[in-house]
Amino acid sequence: MKINTRPARHRALRAVAARAAGAVAVLWGAATLAFFALALIPGDPVTIMLGPFTTAPQSIRDQIAADNGLDKPLFERYLAYLGRLAQGDMGESYQLQKSVAAVIGEALGPTVELALAAVVIAIVLAIVSAVLTAGREGRLRGFVTSWELVAVSLPPHWLGILLLTAFSFQLPIFPVVGVGGPSALVLPALTLALPIIGVLAQVLREGLEAALAQPFAVTARARGLSRRQVRVRHALRHAAVPLATLSGWLAGTLLGGAVIVEAVFGRPGLGALALQSATNKDMPVLIGIVLVSALTFVVISALIDAFQLLVDPRVRT
């Protein structure tokens, strides 16, 4: 089918270009919203920069405001901010005396590590529990589904504390706080993963059951495949199709969960940084975090869309 390749590649390029444009639009929107939202919050940035205990005279305050361009009208500040952003400059932290990029760069590593670990754990456990229980009745299924419901419903911070109590204080298997090797990652990742497992397993199981009820599943078994082979080779791919609708939820859960998990387990990271800069009203860092979150969202949904294309040939045409 040589004739078809060129238009197909054309289409693919156009799709990628459209998606990139969409990503830029999302980032711009996030930057704008963050900028104006934070500008509307009461509190003088100069006071924040100086810290709560200084009694600097008005002249010094004016000087600092002028140095940071804070004396200019809001819209002018917005344009200047966008201009800097376009060059990749997110400004400097009010309090850490470092560039926002450096601050976020330091925090990103541990959070990505945590999120990846959580996603891998969630996917593996959700697949196992869905494949084992889909289309079956009995005690195992009843137990698994009710425990999934519990995992989804429990507040993550409480879950984290529970895990800590059990596996760090009562049974000292894992360290209580900090980063340090894979063993320190287990409990935080599990805490972040549990609610995701709950939702993912339910969606997967429903998809598996729908797929197993289709005539092609009967056909596959009529070929001599075992039940497990039909599940793994045929039904699982079908079950993965509805996951696309979960991308927004997944990004939100990971980011929001990171804030809580990092606080509970005393881990450094984006969540901890967000918490810290919010309490300190460190605006440039907060805006930076908002931008990184928006970027995360764009990346996750792009990845899931690509996965979708890989799994479902019907979407490709």
Binding site: P215, F216, V218, T219, A220, R221, G224, R237, H238, V311
Partner: peptide
Amino acid sequence: RGGRIGLVLQDALVSLDPLR
């Protein structure tokens, strides 16, 4: 199944795995 007795169902659109 398949080796000695084959089964063909109605409507191949859903009897063949649409993802393969």
